[in-house]
């Protein structure tokens, strides 16, 4: 296993550099095709060349290679990576350091991702197990249908529907009433309220978790059904072990290996999926930063924040791969 971990760690380095480079190249290509993003700050006004130059230097877009379409701008890439290593992410158009913006937004996104993750684990696993054990029942059917359904309904449509029917229509009952406590109103609110940092994130978390939840349930179901047919389960039953032990220890523990791996990857998906959910519910998290950057055409926010999210995604995937090797001793690197 030591060899596997070492190899995986060594592989991680080129993958990270490669992914960051790909992102850098997409961004550079965009700038080369569209022109200097600093110009967007001036809107309809025409900036003087001196103004533009000064701004471009602050935002690191003065490099002449940004005018040659197709040039990968390796010098700029190297500069970005070395800044990144030093934790230097630059400033936005209002000259606020990006690190400060991220440190304010991160706790909100982490709370949202955590809630969504808990929902996935609790509801996803339990429905999956019930469906897998009963087989061909109502729960099984529900799991099958909901997976297909949640895959087909884009998150933002689901989010808007939840917002309209649970937030506006159903939540309106509580807002108009005199008896409902504040947290209940916040729970079925339309958007995030800082006064109720947990309750008002529950509906967004449901929306964020929906797709992953259905996938987790389906995966648990399939994996459990497969393992219940395995030889060692038959042996355990033949030995006369109680059903609880056969299912709990023999079948379930083995079936959970792929599920746990998938759940791990889902954390990365949740972090990037938060962009959509945070937009719908007006949540001031990392995704909110990205979307504000998009609305203000502020490349100096979008690039570092997206880079940050990509790094988080890659690190989580690495940890999951390592965890997989610990959980399943059969995994060997050849």
């Amino acid at each position: 296993m030591g060899r596997y971990i070492l190899k995986r760690l060594l592989q991680f380095i080129p993958t990270v550099i490669g992914s960051i480079f790909l992102l850098h190249y997409l961004v550079v290509l965009g700038i080369q095709i569209n022109g200097n993003p600093a110009r967007a700050m001036f809107g309809e006004r025409t900036p003087t060349p001196a103004q533009l130059q000064a701004l471009a230097e602050v935002f690191n877009t003065s490099d002449p290679c940004l005018e040659q379409t197709g040039n990968p701008c390796l010098g700029l890439f190297w500069e970005r990576v070395s800044n990144l290593v030093q934790g230097e992410l630059g400033v936005n158009f209002q000259r606020i350091p990006i690190t400060e913006l991220i440190s304010h937004a991160l706790p909100v996104t982490l709370r949202l991702a955590f809630l969504a993750f808990v929902l996935q684990v609790v509801i996803g696993l339990s429905t999956g197990v019930i469906a897998g054990l009963r087989g061909e029942g109502v729960v099984d059917y529900l799991v099958k249908v909901s997976t297909v359904l949640f895959i087909s309904v884009p998150v933002f449509v689901l989010g808007r529907l939840v917002q309209v029917y649970l937030g506006v229509e159903f939540g309106g009952v509580f807002r108009d009433s005199s008896w409902a406590p504040d947290w209940l109103t916040a729970l079925f609110g339309v958007r995030y309220t800082p006064d109720h940092p947990w309750a008002s994130l529950i509906l967004p978390a449901v929306v964020l978790a929906a797709l992953g939840l259905a996938t987790t349930a389906r995966l648990t179901r399939t994996s459990l059904m497969e393992n219940l047919r395995a030889d060692y389960v038959r042996t355990a039953i033949a030995k006369g072990l109680p059903r609880r032990r056969v299912i709990g220890v023999h079948a379930l523990r083995n079936s959970l290996i792929p599920v746990i791996t998938d759940l791990g990857y889902q954390i990365g998906v949740l972090m990037s999926g938060a962009v959509v959910t945070e937009t719908i519910f007006n949540i001031p998290g990392i995704g909110g930063l990205v979307i504000n950057g998009v609305r203000q055409q502020d490349a100096s926010v979008i690039i570092p924040v997206v880079t940050f999210l990509v790094l988080v995604y890659l690190v989580i995937n690495l940890l999951v791969d390592l965890l997989y090797a610990v959980l399943d001793p059969r995994i060997r690197y050849e």
Binding site: P14, T15, V16, G18, S19, F21, L22, L23, L26, V27, L29, G30, I31, I33, N34, G35, P37, G268, V269, S272, G273, V275, V276, V290, G293, V294, Q297, A299, I302, I303, V306, L309, V310, Y313, L314, N317
Partner: peptide, 25 residues
């Protein structure tokens, strides 16, 4: 394989937002 791992390391939503914002069209 390495190349495809690198590309798969960039979630499409994030890469798409970054590129499409800057490309302008």
């Amino acid at each position: 394989i390495r190349l495809s791992e690198i590309v798969a390391g960039l979630p499409f939503l994030l890469g798409g937002v970054a590129f499409l914002t800057l490309v302008g069209t």
